[in-house]
Amino acid sequence: MATSASLSRTSDFFREVVAEAPVDPRLEACLQCGTCGGSCPSGPDMDHTPRALFAMIAAGMRDAVLRSNTPWYCVSCYYCMERCPQEIRITDVMYTLKRMAIKAGYSAQTSAPRAPGFAQTFVDHVENYGRSFELGLITRYYLSHRPLDALKMAPLGMGLLKRKRLDLSPRPIRQIDQLKAILDRAREIDAAAQLT
């Protein structure tokens, strides 16, 4: 487990990643065995395998890591985390790196530039309605981020509509104000933490 003493020997960037993770990701235990990179379903499309990314984090290569498309190609299948012989919370690290990339403004520079837009659009919908609203999500995401691809998605949307698998309007939760209050408070707590 990472202790304050052992963390003090890591790169600044390594410490930043650990601090941003929800719980200790145990990154310092990495043996560089490659079980994660071998297991990853989208591994062949990543510019660095997860294993390589961890070596880069240890080496403090902040820019290269946050510009990598690797976290955005993570499909959250948890194979790597399940198989990791060192019980490193790899999927959590991927989420953490996505957040850091967005915050650092690097997300649009990766070779998976669409992913952050999709995530942000999704989040906006959930924050506004309390539930995901697929038609709105897809429409807004494609029109604002990928207008040229919108046509490609049209048949799918029509198919879903035809089978009554798509709502035409969002169905907000009843106590949306309560949810917004909770999320606003979370935002304040985050902001306060940034200041300290």
């Binding site: 490659g34 079980t35 071998g38 395998t49 294993r51 390589a52």
Partner: peptide, 11 residues
């Protein structure tokens, strides 16, 4: 056998 060849960095 699916593996990451870590010396190449490729699956």
């Amino acid at each position: 056998i699916q593996v990451e060849d870590t010396l190449i960095g490729k699956q």
